[in-house]
Design a protein around this nucleic acid. Structure first.
Length: 564
DNA sequence: GCCGTTTTCGGCCCGACTGTTTTCAGTCG
């Protein structure tokens, strides 16, 4: 509603207020406790502690929670009874356009907009033409087709190969993938590629002729936007080498992080843009990102942290975390094999893990409740342990270790489907929810905590059970789970599988803050899957995790000693 | 409407590209 109010206010040409509402909406969104709970516990003062929420907006929120509606919102909607959220989702449509469309054509919805465009009514409006009409139709078609964002793992490799092709163009100094992909967000809306070169025109022309470009949306001197054949949007930006650092900083975002940096620059009497950091006309930094941050009085901030959620304050105090590195994992604690629903044998998985540079893996096949996967009962699990013992003898000289594990199923009431005396014989016992996804919060939370209280369960795998774009997370009191993890010495898993990625970045951050240990696992179901660990590491970094927080970044002996 | 290492009043990020205009408003990131 706050976002909607921002648009409705902007439609009236009101200055600044829209930005305030927008900021407040961002503040509310970044809470992971419902505002209702915040209000209930701390009243208006607690609401005002949310970033961007002051007296006025706190009163609006309280009004909504108490009376179910906001007077001012209703008044705005009365003036413009338009579905602004729906219309704003169309690329190229903004508040001013919505206002004209409403006043002249009575457009309220996406369907109205499409009708107006198809029947050629839009081209006659002031400051509109045939091209604007076509652009609107294209925007609607794209909205319907793409429906939004894709997982990082489904697009990163393709973007890297695009970047490699661009790197081979003559005259290119440097190429980088920027934007949310460089920040390693779990989902990506579009691909941003930055190039440094003196030969802008030539680079742009070559880029436009690449085979994966489907449609050109705009192309100017330094900035080009295309739609790719895979359906995604891609922006190319070409800057001179002297501006590389400033441009990379700007193009990486996030927007909120950039705005905060620019405000710091202003306070120092400087101006920050994508060409550099300037005092008057004189550039004081810009060739590298490091010098831009330094000139602003900040420690270098890793891209994964640039969300304006405290990293700038930490950088000012030189208190940023020493993030876990992309090469720091020594083992993988969730691996499936052909004993259940994996594709490959234990031995093959071990060889693949070695090739990926790992020193150990835990074999964690499903247990009997997952009958369709051939889940193991106690007998089968003991048999598998025997095979692992035999393989370990074989791998001894290679300095590689296979750990005995399982992905034990958590029942509806939190009970486990493998007996304690067998669990006791495992090196690593993980447990996970695979059914009853719809239980109410308190039941769901109690069930997971009961599993954690088992003296043998070391790790909770994919805690919330979500599948990005397919299945929502189970309703869990994550803070209660984190507290229980601390109390019981249970590890929480960061699952690296691209459409799982739970626990997600903000949960990682809360777990780390609470002193709970984490593992980063590939959830490999095939020898190819060890490459996925990168995405889990990314999520952990976005959650401010350090090497010391991640148990499988430790040597195997130390890790085993830590487990229950 | 919000906020404070410059402020409790007076600021609020900055530039590229497009389309429809004859100089710029709107949108985007």
């Amino acid at each position: 509603m706050l976002r909607e109010m921002a648009v409705l206010l902007e439609m009236q040409g009101i200055a600044w207020k829209p930005r305030a509402y927008e900021k407040a909406a961002g503040g509310v969104e970044s809470q992971d406790v419902p505002v209702a709970d915040i209000y209930e516990q701390g009243g208006i003062p607690a609401l005002e502690r949310i970033a961007g929420v002051g007296r006025g907006i706190a009163a609006h929120i309280a009004e909504l929670l108490q009376k179910g509606s906001i007077k001012e919102y209703a008044a705005l909607k009365k003036k413009f009874p338009v579905n602004v959220t729906e219309l704003m989702a169309v690329e190229g449509v903004g508040p001013a356009m919505i206002r004209v469309l409403w006043e002249k054509l009575r457009v309220r919805s996406l369907a109205d907009l499409e009708r107006a465009a198809v029947t050629g009514k839009i081209r006659g409006l002031p400051r509109f033409g045939e091209k604007s009409e076509q652009k609107i139709l294209k925007g609607i078609a794209f909205l319907r087709a793409s429906g939004g964002r894709r997982t990082l793992g489904s697009v990163l490799l393709e973007a890297r190969s695009m970047a490699a092709m661009i790197r081979s163009f003559p005259g290119v100094h440097d190429v980088a993938i920027a934007g949310s992909m460089r920040r390693r967000k779990e989902t990506i809306g579009d691909i941003d590629i930055l190039v440094s070169s003196e030969r802008k025109k030539e680079i742009t022309e070559r880029f436009l002729s690449l085979p994966f470009v489907a449609d050109v949306q705009g192309s100017g001197e330094t900035k080009t936007s295309v739609r790719l054949k895979n359906g995604m949007d891609c922006d190319l930006r070409v800057v001179p080498p002297a501006s590389w650092g400033a441009a990379l900083q700007y193009f990486t975002g996030s927007k909120e992080h950039n705005v905060a940096l620019r405000e710091i620059a202003i306070k120092k009497g400087l101006k920050l843009n994508e060409y550099g950091l300037f005092r008057g006309k004189k550039a004081v930094a810009g060739r590298t990102e490091e010098e831009v941050y330094k000139a602003l009085g900040l420690a270098y901030i890793e891209p994964e942290l640039r969300e304006d959620i405290g990293e700038i304050e930490a950088a000012r105090k030189d208190a940023l975390p020493a993030l876990i590195g992309y090469d720091d994992l020594k083992g993988d604690l969730q691996v499936q094999t052909d004993w259940t629903d994996g594709e490959d044998s234990i031995e093959k998985m071990a060889h693949a893990a070695m090739a990926a540079g790992l020193g150990y893996i835990a074999i964690t096949d499903h247990t009997k409740s997952l009958a369709m996967t051939g889940g193991a009962d106690e007998k089968k699990l003991l048999r598998q342990m025997g095979e692992i013992d035999a393989l370990n003898k074989k791998f001894k000289q290679k300095n590689f270790k296979i750990l005995k594990g399982a992905e034990v199923n958590i029942g509806k009431d939190g009970s486990l489907d493998i007996a304690d005396d067998v669990l006791a014989q495992l090196d690593v016992a993980g447990a996970a929810v695979h059914s009853h996804f719809g239980l109410p919060r308190h039941e769901q939370t109690a069930r997971v905590i009961r599993a954690m209280e088992n003296p043998h369960i070391d790790i909770i795998f994919h805690l919330t059970g979500r599948i990005i774009g397919k299945r929502p997370a189970i309703d869990l009191d994550v803070d209660a789970v984190i507290a229980a993890a601390k109390r019981t010495g249970t590890v929480l898993e960061v699952n690296a599988y691209p459409d799982r990625m739970d626990i997600k970045d903000e949960h990682v951050r809360r777990a780390v803050a609470a002193g709970v240990l984490l593992s980063i696992d590939s959830d490999a179901h095939s020898t190819r899957h060890f490459d996925l660990l990168e995405y889990g590491i990314a999520a952990a970094r976005r959650g401010w995790a350090e090497k010391k927080d991640i148990i499988n970044a430790w040597p195997v002996e130390k890790m085993l000693k830590m487990l229950k």
